[in-house]
Amino acid sequence: MTQSTDAAPLFQPVTVGRMSLPNRIAMAPLTRSRADNVTGVPTAMNAAYYAQRADAGLIIAEATQISPQGKGYAYTPGIHSAEQVAGWRLVTDAVRAKGGRMALQLWHVGRVSHPDLQPGGALPVAPSAVKPTLKAFTTEGFKDIPTPRALEIDELPGIVEDYRIAARNAVAAGFDAVEVHAANGYLIDQFLRDGTNQRTDAYGGSVANRARFLFEVLDAVVGEIGADRVGIRLSPLSPSNDAQESDPQAAYSPVIERLNDYKLAYLHMIEGVTRGPHPGFGGLLAELRGLYKGRYIANNVYTRAMAIEAVGGGHADLVAFGRPFIANPDLVERLRLDAPLAEPDSKTFYGGDARGYTDYPTLGAATA
Rank of each mutant, 00 (worst) to 15 (best):
residue 333 E to Y: 06
residue 308 I to D: 06
residue 165 I to L: 06
residue 174 G to K: 01
residue 227 A to Y: 08
residue 82 A to N: 14
residue 274 T to Y: 15
residue 118 Q to G: 04
residue 244 Q to C: 00
residue 27 M to N: 05
residue 150 A to M: 01
residue 216 E to S: 04
residue 346 S to M: 06
residue 108 H to N: 15
residue 332 V to R: 02
residue 179 E to L: 05
residue 321 F to V: 05
residue 48 A to W: 00
residue 113 S to T: 08
residue 361 P to T: 03
residue 58 L to E: 15
residue 137 F to V: 12
residue 298 A to N: 13
residue 66 I to S: 10
residue 305 A to V: 08
residue 259 L to W: 12
residue 202 A to C: 03
residue 126 A to C: 06
residue 190 Q to Y: 05
residue 351 G to H: 12
residue 153 I to E: 12
residue 70 G to T: 02
residue 94 A to F: 11
residue 170 A to S: 15
residue 215 F to D: 03
residue 228 D to G: 00
residue 118 Q to L: 01
residue 190 Q to T: 01
residue 268 H to G: 14
residue 109 V to K: 07
residue 2 T to H: 11
residue 118 Q to Y: 02
residue 57 G to L: 03
residue 264 L to N: 10
residue 182 A to P: 03
residue 334 R to S: 11
residue 241 N to A: 14
residue 330 D to N: 11
residue 11 F to E: 11
residue 247 D to K: 07
residue 306 M to W: 00
residue 152 E to H: 13
residue 330 D to V: 09
residue 77 P to V: 01
residue 45 M to N: 12
residue 308 I to A: 04
residue 56 A to V: 07
residue 321 F to T: 08
residue 190 Q to E: 14
residue 262 Y to P: 07
residue 53 R to G: 07
residue 112 V to N: 07
residue 160 V to K: 00
residue 185 G to A: 06
residue 125 V to P: 01
residue 181 H to M: 12
residue 203 Y to K: 06
residue 139 T to M: 04
residue 357 Y to R: 11
residue 237 L to D: 03
residue 325 F to M: 01
residue 322 G to V: 02
residue 23 N to M: 10
residue 359 D to H: 12
residue 163 Y to F: 14
residue 167 A to D: 00
residue 158 G to R: 14
residue 179 E to V: 13
residue 292 Y to D: 04
residue 82 A to T: 15
residue 59 I to N: 10
residue 70 G to D: 01
residue 94 A to K: 04
residue 39 T to Q: 05
residue 103 A to R: 07
residue 150 A to E: 07
residue 178 V to H: 05
residue 363 L to C: 10
residue 355 R to Y: 13
residue 328 N to K: 11
residue 254 P to V: 02
residue 224 E to M: 05
residue 237 L to N: 08
residue 240 S to M: 09
residue 82 A to P: 13
residue 153 I to P: 00
residue 30 L to M: 14
residue 132 P to R: 01
residue 4 S to F: 05
residue 151 L to T: 08
residue 138 T to P: 03
residue 211 A to V: 07
residue 264 L to Q: 02
residue 187 L to D: 04
residue 362 T to Y: 02
residue 284 L to I: 08
residue 165 I to G: 00
residue 68 P to H: 01
residue 17 G to E: 10
residue 13 P to F: 04
residue 206 S to M: 01
residue 39 T to A: 09
residue 298 A to E: 12
residue 61 A to T: 13
residue 169 N to C: 09
residue 344 P to E: 06
residue 93 D to W: 06
residue 225 I to P: 00
residue 240 S to N: 14
residue 350 Y to L: 15
residue 298 A to D: 15
residue 154 D to H: 13
residue 356 G to P: 02
residue 355 R to L: 14
residue 270 I to P: 09
residue 337 L to M: 15
residue 203 Y to N: 07
residue 272 G to H: 11
residue 342 A to H: 13
residue 93 D to I: 04
residue 220 A to S: 09
residue 319 V to P: 04
residue 337 L to T: 14
residue 349 F to M: 11
residue 329 P to K: 06
residue 299 N to V: 12
residue 22 P to N: 12
residue 364 G to C: 00
residue 145 I to H: 00
residue 344 P to L: 08
residue 78 G to N: 10
residue 120 G to R: 08
residue 344 P to Y: 13
residue 98 K to C: 09
residue 224 E to F: 05
residue 353 D to C: 02
residue 302 Y to M: 14
residue 112 V to W: 04
residue 68 P to C: 04
residue 245 E to M: 01
residue 348 T to I: 05
residue 48 A to G: 06
residue 331 L to D: 03
residue 4 S to D: 03
